[in-house]
Nucleic acid binder design. Structure first.
Length: 176
DNA sequence: AAGAAGATTCGCT
DNA sequence: GCGAATCTTCTTA
C-alpha cells in the first residue's frame, strides 16, 4: 500500500500509487495457489516480489505481487492505483477522459497500464518494464473489509484500502 | 467431452 | 440492476 507501481513503455512511463489491495495468503481456499500447479499459475509459486498476472472472465488481466518463499504460493492482488504519471496515455488506452475511471479496479488498472501475460513473472523489486518504486507520500488511514467478488473464505477481511481515496473500487460502504 | 464458475468490466435499461 | 464478453480451470459424466 502506498508504493508506486511503475510501468515503463517505449513511449513513456506510466505510474500509480497503490491504494487498494487484497491478500491471498498461504492455505487460502480463494487463492489461485490453493489447488496446486496449473498451466497458468506458475508464477504465484515463485519468491516474493514477482508479478503474477492472469486472465479471467475472458476479458480482464489481474496483477498480483507474490508474497511467499519459492514453492509456497501466495500473492497480493493490486485492486486500484491513483494515477501519477502518464495519465494522458492511460486515457487513450482506456478510451475515456474520466481520470477516476482509469485505474479504479483490478481489470481497469491492468488495462490502463498495459499489463498482460507478457509481464507474468517479472521481478518487481528493481527498475524494469514493471516494478514497485518508493511511495510518493505516506499512506493515509487504512480501511479493511471482506474481499470483493470472492465466494470462498468470505468471512476473511483481507481487503485493505486507503480510506476515502476516490480511486478505491467497490461500493461506497467499502470505501469509507 | 461438455458445462459451469471465476480475485471483472461495459453497455443498456 | 442485468446480461454479454469469452479464457482458464474445475466438475461431472
Amino acid at each position: 500500500m502506498g508504493k508506486t507501481l511503475v510501468r515503463e513503455l517505449g513511449r513513456g512511463t506510466l505510474s500509480g500509487r497503490i491504494v487498494e489491495v487484497e491478500a491471498y495468503p498461504i492455505g487460502d481456499a480463494a487463492g489461485h495457489a490453493f489447488r496446486g500447479h496449473t498451466p497458468g499459475n506458475h508464477s504465484i509459486f515463485r519468491e516474493h516480489g514477482r508479478a503474477y498476472v492472469y486472465f479471467i472472465y475472458g476479458s480482464c488481466y489481474m496483477m498480483n505481487v507474490t508474497s511467499e518463499r519459492p514453492g509456497i504460493g501466495g500473492a497480493v492482488l493490486l485492486r486500484a492505483v491513483e494515477p501519477l504519471e502518464g495519465t494522458n496515455l492511460m486515457q487513450r488506452r482506456r478510451g475515456t477522459a474520466r481520470v477516476r475511471d482509469l485505474t479504479r479496479g483490478p481489470g481497469r488498472l491492468a488495462s490502463a497500464m498495459r499489463i498482460d501475460r507478457r509481464l507474468d513473472g517479472v521481478d518487481l523489486c528493481a527498475p524494469g518494464p514493471l516494478w514497485l518504486g518508493t511511495a510518493v507520500r505516506p499512506v493515509g488511514r487504512i480501511g479493511r473489509s471482506v474481499r470483493i467478488g470472492v465466494t470462498r473464505e468470505m468471512n476473511r477481511r483481507l481487503r485493505l484500502y486507503e480510506r476515502g481515496n476516490p480511486f478505491v473500487s467497490g461500493p461506497k460502504r467499502l470505501r469509507v
